[in-house]
C-alpha cells in the first residue's frame, strides 16, 4: 500500500508548486481583466473604487453604437453559421457512420477533420485568396461562408461521437416494425442524437462567435464582428471599457461551453446503448 501511495503522481516533489504555477499562468490574466473591469478609474493599471461605470460605457458610451453593430453581426453570423454547420455535420456523420463501408471512408474522415489541424492563418489566407479569385466582394456574406466552413469539424465531433454510441440495432428494429429508412432516421436516430446535435451546435456557435483571424482576413472594410471591433479599439490604446466588453464575452463563452458539456452529460445519462439488465 505504501509503495502505491509513493508512486502516485501527487506525491512527487514539486508537484503542487508546478500545478499552482500552471493555474496561475492560465487564469491570472483573465482574473486581472475581470477584476479591473469593475474599476472606476480612467487608467487600466491604477485601482480606484468598484463601479459598473465601464459596463455602462459599453452600452451607452461613445463607442456603444460601434460595439452594438459588431455584436449584432457576431451573433447573427454565429447563429446562421452554427445552424448550417450542424446540419451539414449531421448529414456527414450519418453518411460516415450509417452508410456501411464505402470507398474512401477514411479519406472522407480526414477531409472533414483536417481543418482542425491546419494553422488558422493558412486557412484565413487561403480563404481570402479563394474569394478574390472568384471575384467575391468581401463583407458580411464572405464572413458567413467562411464561418460555416470552419465550424463544420467542430460541430461534427460531438455529433459523430454521439452517433457512434448508438447501436445500429435500433434502426433495424424500426425497419422491422415497418418504418422506412427515412422514418427510422427521423423517429429513432434523430431523437437519440439530439444531445449530440445540440452540443455540436453550441460548440460551433461559440467557435464562430470568438473567431478573429479568419474573420479579420475575409471581412473587408466597413464591417466588424465583436472580436475585430475589440482589436480595432485596442489598437488606439487600451481603455477600461475593453476590459468590460471582454469580460462579457468571456461570460457568454464559458456559459455556452458549460451548456454544451451539460447537454452532452444529459445524453450520457439517458444512455440509449444500455444492455438489458439481468434480474
Amino acid at each position: 500500500m505504501m509503495s502505491e501511495k509513493n508512486l502516485d503522481l501527487r506525491y512527487f516533489t514539486g508537484f503542487l508548486p508546478l500545478t499552482l504555477l500552471c493555474l496561475f499562468l492560465l487564469y491570472a490574466p483573465l482574473i486581472v481583466v475581470m477584476v479591473y473591469s469593475f474599476n472606476d478609474s480612467n487608467s487600466i493599471t491604477r485601482w480606484d473604487t468598484v463601479s459598473l461605470r465601464w459596463y455602462y460605457d459599453v452600452f451607452y458610451g461613445l463607442e456603444a453604437p460601434k460595439f452594438k453593430a459588431a455584436a449584432i453581426n457576431s451573433i447573427s453570423i454565429a447563429i446562421m453559421a452554427a445552424t448550417s454547420a450542424t446540419i451539414i455535420a449531421t448529414l456527414a456523420a450519418t453518411a460516415m457512420l450509417r452508410a456501411g463501408r464505402f470507398k474512401g471512408k477514411s479519406f472522407s474522415f480526414a477531409l472533414i477533420n483536417l481543418p482542425l489541424m491546419v494553422p488558422e492563418i493558412v486557412t484565413a489566407v487561403a480563404t481570402l485568396i479563394f474569394f478574390s479569385a472568384i471575384g467575391f466582394t468581401t463583407g458580411y456574406l464572405t464572413i458567413l461562408i467562411a464561418h460555416i466552413v470552419f465550424c463544420i469539424p467542430f460541430a461534427y465531433l460531438p455529433i459523430a461521437a454521439r452517433m457512434e454510441g448508438i447501436e445500429g440495432v435500433y434502426e433495424q428494429v424500426a425497419q422491422d416494425l415497418y418504418a422506412t429508412r427515412l422514418q427510422a432516421f427521423r423517429l429513432i436516430l434523430m431523437p437519440l442524437m439530439a444531445p449530440g446535435i445540440l452540443s455540436g451546435f453550441l460548440l460551433a456557435f461559440i467557435i464562430s462567435l470568438d473567431d478573429f483571424i479568419i474573420t479579420n482576413f475575409v471581412k473587408g472594410a466597413g464591417i466588424e464582428t465583436l472580436p475585430t471591433a475589440i482589436f480595432g479599439a485596442v489598437k488606439q490604446g487600451i481603455k477600461p471599457n475593453i476590459m468590460a466588453i471582454s469580460t462579457l464575452l468571456l461570460v457568454v463563452s464559458v456559459g455556452f461551453v458549460a451548456l454544451s458539456y451539460f447537454v452532452g452529460q444529459m445524453g450520457e445519462k439517458a444512455n440509449p446503448t444500455t444492455k438489458p439488465k439481468g434480474d
Binding site: 447501436e167 428494429v173 425497419q175 422491422d176 439517458a270
Partner: peptide, 20 residues
C-alpha cells in the same frame, strides 16, 4: 423485399427497446 415490406417481426437478442 426490404425489411419493412415483410410481414414478419423480430424479437432481437438485445431487446433494443427504443430508449426515448
Amino acid at each position: 423485399l426490404m425489411p419493412n415490406e415483410r410481414p414478419v417481426n423480430t424479437v432481437f437478442q438485445q431487446y433494443a427497446l427504443f430508449p426515448h
